[in-house]
Computed example of a mutant assay.
Amino acid sequence: MKWTERQKLRIGGEEKDVPWWVNDKLKLANFCKENDLPTPNIDVVWEHPDQIDLSSFGENFVLKPSVLHSARGVMVLKRLPDGKFYDGLTQRELTQETIIKEQTKHFEDCKYKSNYRIFIEEKVAGDDEVGGAVPLDYKIYCFYGVPRMVFQFNRNHKPKRAAWFDGQFRPIRMRENIRSDWKFIHHGVHILPREWEKMLEIASRASKLVKTPFISVDMFSSKRGPLIGELTPAPGGPFYGDMYKFSEEFDTDLGREWAAALERMKGDVK
Rank of each mutant, 00 (worst) to 15 (best):
W3N: 03
E5F: 02
R6P: 01
K8L: 13
L9N: 06
G12W: 08
G12I: 08
G13Y: 12
E15A: 11
E15M: 11
V18H: 09
V18W: 07
P19A: 05
L26H: 04
A29R: 13
N30W: 01
C32N: 09
D36S: 13
L37A: 04
L37D: 10
N41R: 06
I42C: 06
V44I: 15
D53C: 02
L54C: 10
S56R: 13
N60L: 14
L63A: 11
S66M: 12
V67S: 06
L68R: 14
L68W: 12
G73Q: 03
G73F: 15
G73L: 05
V76H: 10
L77W: 00
L80P: 14
G83H: 03
K84L: 14
F85Y: 15
Y86S: 06
Y86G: 03
Y86W: 11
D87N: 14
Q91I: 01
E93L: 00
E93V: 07
Q96R: 13
T98W: 06
K101W: 14
E102Q: 10
Q103C: 11
T104R: 14
T104D: 07
T104M: 05
K105T: 14
K105A: 15
D109G: 07
N115P: 00
R117A: 12
F119N: 12
V124Y: 05
A125F: 04
D127I: 15
V130W: 08
V130C: 08
G132H: 12
P135M: 06
P135A: 06
P135C: 00
L136N: 13
D137S: 07
Y138F: 13
K139E: 05
I140T: 09
I140A: 01
Y141Q: 15
V146N: 01
V146P: 00
V150Y: 01
Q152N: 01
N154V: 11
N154L: 09
N156F: 05
H157C: 08
K160P: 03
R161P: 02
R161H: 12
A162P: 01
F165C: 15
F165P: 11
G167W: 07
R173A: 12
R175T: 15
E176C: 05
N177W: 12
I178S: 14
S180W: 05
D181F: 13
D181P: 10
F184P: 08
I185D: 03
I191S: 09
I191P: 05
P193S: 07
R194H: 11
E201Q: 11
E201H: 05
E201D: 08
A203Q: 03
A206K: 06
S207T: 07
K208S: 08
L209E: 02
K211P: 01
T212N: 10
I215C: 09
S216Y: 03
V217Q: 09
D218S: 09
K223W: 10
K223H: 02
G225H: 14
G229K: 05
E230I: 03
T232K: 07
T232C: 04
P233D: 06
P235C: 10
G236R: 09
G237Y: 00
G237P: 02
P238N: 11
M243C: 04
Y244C: 12
K245E: 07
F246T: 07
F250S: 04
D253W: 13
E257P: 04
W258L: 00
A259E: 14
L262D: 14
L262Y: 00
K266V: 06
G267F: 07
G267D: 02
D268A: 13
